[in-house]
Design a protein around this nucleic acid. Structure first.
Lengths: 310, 310
DNA sequence: GGCTGTTACGCTTCGCGTAATCATG
DNA sequence: CATGATTACGCGAAGCGTAACAGCC
């Protein structure tokens, strides 16, 4: 068994079962990839891919198991390279952060700026997605650090640090009738058309649970992945926005007013998650400390060790 | 980077930093291994091994990190082969059980016998060790299944199933003064010389904790890894044995009497542990069911899935 | 017929084995 | 001087690229 064979399979799956694309990604020829896959399939004695004629269309059942392992192998290999980069004193490197729009837009910019000036040779990637995607990317090793709320802390493979707590607020045009009210109740809120995050009502998230427990059905007229889009539609008068507190800025969001609704919903906690078993480069620890000063390298290391064996 | 290079490093470390031994284990030549290691070290740009002259004597600090990753890679590769063996309908295979002497001697024999007659082509290995070693072997992938008490369930990487509960008993020669007592107290027990398991008093195990909490210091005169050895010395009159209930057999252990002391110690639970992220072959599920009929394949799978994301 | 994967073939490289050399205790 | 690691060298295999061929939509 050769590493190259595993890389081939990995890339083929990643590229939607296209051998040609995989070959390109691997900087090699199409026939080479084809051959390697066949060799591995021959060696393990089973078809990893499902083929329609000559075209690959999916993973066979054993193939799915094999692919899981291969993914882990590729991750570890990447990790080995990180170790080498770290110890060869190289200031070069890559840091990939997976996070939600709210973080990327309102919390990270200052941190990112500081980080980039301290580590000019580190390439910084920010992958955006909903909390589930963020968790996934970190688990798969596609991102080094994930920053998101709630669900990221529900995964065994991840080590999570609570960063800060926050709650929600409403945003609406200044002339909106609700803007004059002193206190908003859940019942009243449910009578207005609401625009909010699209993942807030998929699965059993906090917001949907609160309404459900109160026996109310909110009138969600529109959902979006990020607060900027939500605010845009709020400005158009399509509804009132239910967003994270930190996504409202009275200066920037002229024409909109915000009403705190932290009495209606439990506070949420934003977590930073990393894979437990991954090698962390110095600058990764540093990024964490820049983001949350309470967690310098030594503290993070200690916390991770403590969790390793209960 | 080549798999063979990783295998070389893995074997060299496993064989006490001997390139010659590693070469033998890999069925290849000494120079070949030497070369591959150099190539990898060159590629990652750092020395993985510490050398005294030409002899390898240990892992450098970066080397330790690298070695951890390599270990995982090797494990995954092994796992891929297991997948292939499983799906190619092969009845061939290897099942390695890590367990303590008590299990191996008193609980497993009937299970092993049944397993071997059902799967004559599966090679069965039993690794013996103390609970810590058992846990380690499963974590490292050197064993597929670990069966031990307590500490095995304290590891994040392992999925554990409670098997049964048990407690302790005393064994002593029939003519021993304590044999006439109706009930043994902890205080009285502490006045006699005791022979017990050697790991029962390392770390914060249940037995040592019970004595400590009572403000007593037991008089441990001798410790051994297994109950058979303990009983041998008890027979010689060197002390009374404190062993697991299931390790006493009134027929086999003629000349010894046992006194139940389950009122003095909390019950212990024996767990069966497997790595969460490993591929389990059909016969492995079957072994688990043979050992604990309450856990057939479907139940085990369901429990593992439930634990994956809380 | 355009896209995509497989087969064919030749070149180059790389891994591995043997033998010789070197360092160390 | 004996053990164990490195260097040297030659053979054979394997990976890869180009080109030609074959199945689908």
């Amino acid at each position: 068994m050769k590493l190259q064979q595993l890389r081939c399979i990995h890339e083929v799956v990643k590229n939607g079962f296209s051998i040609s694309k995989a070959a390109e990604a691997l900087h090699t020829s199409q026939p080479g990839v084809s051959k390697q896959i066949q060799l591995l399939e021959e060696e393990v004695g089973l078809h990893i891919f499902i083929r329609h004629g000559k075209r690959l269309v999916g993973l066979s059942e054993p193939g799915q198991h094999v692919y899981q392992r291969i993914n882990e192998v590729i991750r570890e290999i990447k990790s080995i390279k990180q170790v080498s980069e770290e110890f060869s004193q190289s200031s070069l490197g890559v840091l990939t952060i997976a996070t939600t729009h709210t973080q990327a837009r309102y919390k990270l910019p200052s941190v990112v700026q500081a980080f980039m000036s301290k580590y000019p040779d580190v390439k910084l990637n920010i992958h955006q997605g909903n909390p589930t995607q963020v968790t996934d990317q970190v688990v798969k090793g596609e991102a080094d650090i994930g920053i998101a709320t709630e669900s990221i802390s529900h995964n065994d493979k991840l080590f999570c640090l609570p960063c800060y707590t926050w709650n929600r607020c409403l945003v609406m045009p200044a002339k909106h009738p609700l803007a004059k009210e002193k206190t908003v109740t859940l019942a009243k809120l449910a009578t207005y058309p609401i625009i909010t995050y699209d993942y807030a009502f998929t699965g059993s998230t906090i917001v949907s649970k609160v309404f459900h427990d109160a026996g109310l059905t909110p009138n969600i007229v529109l959902t979006a992945i990020d607060a900027d889009v939500i605010k845009t539609y709020v400005n158009l008068g399509l509804g009132i926005g239910l967003i994270a507190q930190m996504a409202y800025d009275s200066k920037r969001d002229q024409g909109l007013v915000s009403i705190d609704v932290s009495h209606l919903f439990p506070t949420s906690t934003t977590y930073l998650g990393i894979r437990r078993d991954v090698f962390l480069r110095g600058f990764m620890y540093d990024f964490i400390e820049m983001f949350i000063p309470e967690y310098p390298k030594q503290v993070v290391k200690k916390l991770m060790l403590e969790q390793e064996n209960i």
